[in-house]
Design a binder for these strands. Structure first.
Lengths: 138, 138
DNA sequence: ATTTGTGCAAATCGTTTGCATCTGA
DNA sequence: TCAGATGCAAACGATTTGCACAAAT
C-alpha cells in the first residue's frame, strides 16, 4: 500500500540529493525517520517500527540504511550506552539528556548550554565535536 | 612471585575498605589500576597487561573485577565508542578528550571546562552526571 | 564450615559480512 | 544492462552466564 505521494517525493528528493538510490526500503525508512520531527532511534527500534507498519525490510538493511544516511550527514550516530548505538535525525549542533532508566535521549538545543571555556586541544589535534551528555535518573 | 609488600597492603586495605575480599587476582588487578597515576583501561587492555606481567587471571575475572570496582566507586565506566567500554581510575568530577584515531582517552580537569549555563532537568528528573567529551581527530 | 570468587566454556546480543538474488536507472 | 541494494544466514567480537572447583573468612 502506498503512502502520501507528496511526502514520498520529498523524501525521494532528499535521497537523490544525497546520492542514494531511493529504493523501496530506503524510502520507507527515511519516511519514518524524517517524516516527523527530530527522532532518536536504534537499529532495533527502527526495525520494529517498520515491521509494525508492515514494511518488509531486513535488519541488515536497516543497519545499512542507518550507516548510509549517517555517511551522508542525514543522521548522527551517538554512543552513550555500550548496549547499542543511537542515531539522531538532528545533525546540527546540540546536546543530550540521557535518561538512565529508560535509555531514552532528548535533545538540548545548543543555545541552552553555554560553555564558557574550553581547554586547548592537545598538540596537533583538532576538535571535531564537543558532546555534552547530561545523565539523569528518572 | 610476590610484589612490594608495602604497596600490596595499601591496595589490600582499599579493597577491604570497599568490602571486597582481597583475593590474589583482585589485588594484582588493583595494583595495576591504582598503583600508578590515573588510567583508562578496557577489559581487554587490562587483561593483556596482566598477562604480560605473568599474572594468572581469566578474562571473565577481569570483567568481574572491573564491575566490582565500579560498583564500589573505585572506577568509573565510560561509553564513548560502541566497540568497548572504558574504565577510568579517576572517579572525580572531570571530562575527556577522545582521540578518534587511536581510541584513547585523556582526562580534562573539571576546572578546565566552564559550563556557564545548564538547562534545567526535565520534570521529575535529577541530574546524575554531566559528561563533556571533546572528540579530536589526531 | 560457609560464603564468596575464579576459571572455563558455552551462551548472548548487537552488529557486520559473504554471497546469491533482485531492482532501479 | 548492470552497478548498486537487499535478504538471509553465518560470522564476529565484546560481554555475560552457569556451574564445578578453589580460596578467603
Amino acid at each position: 500500500m502506498r503512502q502520501n505521494t507528496l511526502v514520498d517525493s520529498t523524501v525521494m528528493e532528499r535521497l537523490r540529493a544525497a546520492g542514494l538510490r531511493p529504493t523501496r526500503q530506503r524510502l520507507a525508512l527515511a519516511q519514518i525517520l524524517f517524516g516527523q520531527g527530530d527522532r532518536h532511534v536504534t537499529a532495533e527500534s527502527l526495525f520494529n517500527e517498520a515491521k509494525s507498519q508492515r514494511i518488509d525490510v531486513s535488519l541488515a538493511t536497516v543497519y545499512n540504511a542507518l550507516h548510509d544516511f549517517t555517511g551522508k550527514d542525514m543522521l548522527r550516530e551517538i554512543s552513550i550506552d555500550s548496549n547499542s548505538s543511537y542515531f539522531d535525525t538532528n545533525t546540527g549542533d546540540h546536546h543530550h539528556f540521557f535518561f538512565e532508566r529508560s535509555g531514552k535521549l532528548q535533545d538540548i538545543p545548543s543555545e541552552h548550554i553555554n560553555i564558557a571555556s574550553l581547554p586547548e586541544a592537545p598538540a596537533g589535534a583538532q576538535i571535531s565535536r564537543v558532546d555534552v551528555i547530561i545523565r539523569v535518573k528518572a
